[in-house]
Design a protein around this nucleic acid. Structure first.
Lengths: 177, 177
DNA sequence: CATTTATGTCAACGTCGCTGACATAAATTG
DNA sequence: CAATTTATGTCAGCGACGTTGACATAAATG
């Protein structure tokens, strides 16, 4: 361990001191702003499509998770989206009425309404996701596999323990292919 | 240019083909879900504080950018936030009324209202940012500098050219320290 | 049979986007 | 100087999406 006696230390530490024991102020602010601008870029394409129909971002989220985990129950979807039953209902009802989502009574538990995308629902979800996937594809390709690993690592670590578990469960539990 | 005649191409491409010319389906879906869950985690702490007062996420955004770029004009803030004048007004007025934001007439152009945080505004913004900074600090520390580079790289590449320019300008133009 | 669980629905509310229109003051330009 | 443009503020109204609290139904469970 190097000599760290006070006589060898600067009296004032620069605010943007990278040698300090953590990320610099600047790095933190940049990180926060990248989250803001990045997320906005990520959602803007589907938002544009949705706004032309009578849907919003919440409809996309529902379609996405029903699409990747067909047959999930309403309760499970509520848990993933972390919204109230009433909020979900306002999103789910139009999707069902418009023939994009289908409900089937659970086989084991006939109280449950299991959720599936119809063919139209699959098509619409893909139309919404396509520009996002294109964005991710381009970013992942240009950034390279190591950067992608870092991206995933940091975002995972941004979550609380419980949230991370839930997110990883959702990601892992999604229908293969 | 390599030979790409049909006879050398596989008839069917596996859905999760990592050897293909881009990120796998699975990687893309994971990326999308990490954006969703990560952003939610990132915003949840300040959201909780804000909801107890009469503010929302939009107030935090305004405070953040006024804080990092004191003296920006209303037009500049509109450009950063990418909302309408009316949307911003509804956010800005309460902040001014509550003494968190101060307006000063521009010296060169007296039509401009330059925006500054008051002492109370600085304190409140720091209170809101503290948990986010803690989150980022923890994630950056545990992930390590290389991962952080990847995180930033991927998020930057997620933006369109114009957006990226704007974001980098904002990040670079922020008040040093 | 009583309770709990899964779901749906109604009323009321708040935040935060939007559009379109109009007002004011200051800068700019012909 | 008069006309126009620019920077800002404000009004009315609307839509999406989140909230809470209460209540109803059907099915599972003890």
């Amino acid at each position: 361990m190097p000599d760290m006696t006070a006589s060898k230390m600067p009296l004032f530490i620069a605010c943007d001191d990278e040698e300090h024991d953590g990320p610099s102020e600047r790095a933190l602010r940049e990180g926060a702003e990248l989250m803001f601008f990045g997320y906005r870029s990520f959602t803007q394409d589907p938002d544009k499509i949705l706004s032309e129909l009578d849907y919003g971002r919440a409809h996309h989220r529902a379609l996405h998770f029903i699409g990747t985990q067909p047959g999930l129950s309403v309760a499970e979807l509520l848990d993933i989206l972390d919204v109230t039953k009433q909020s979900l209902a306002r999103v789910l009802k139009p999707l069902i009425d418009d023939g994009l989502v289908e409900q089937r009574v659970g086989e084991n538990d006939r109280r449950q309404r299991l959720l599936f995308l119809t063919n139209d629902g699959v098509a619409f979800e893909e139309r919404l996701s396509a520009p996002q996937r294109a964005r991710l594809t381009r970013a992942f390709r240009e950034a390279g596999p190591e950067a992608v690993e870092g991206f995933r690592f940091v975002l995972e670590l941004m979550m609380d323990e419980e949230q991370r578990k839930q997110a990883l469960t959702v990601i892992a539990g999604a229908k293969p292919l």
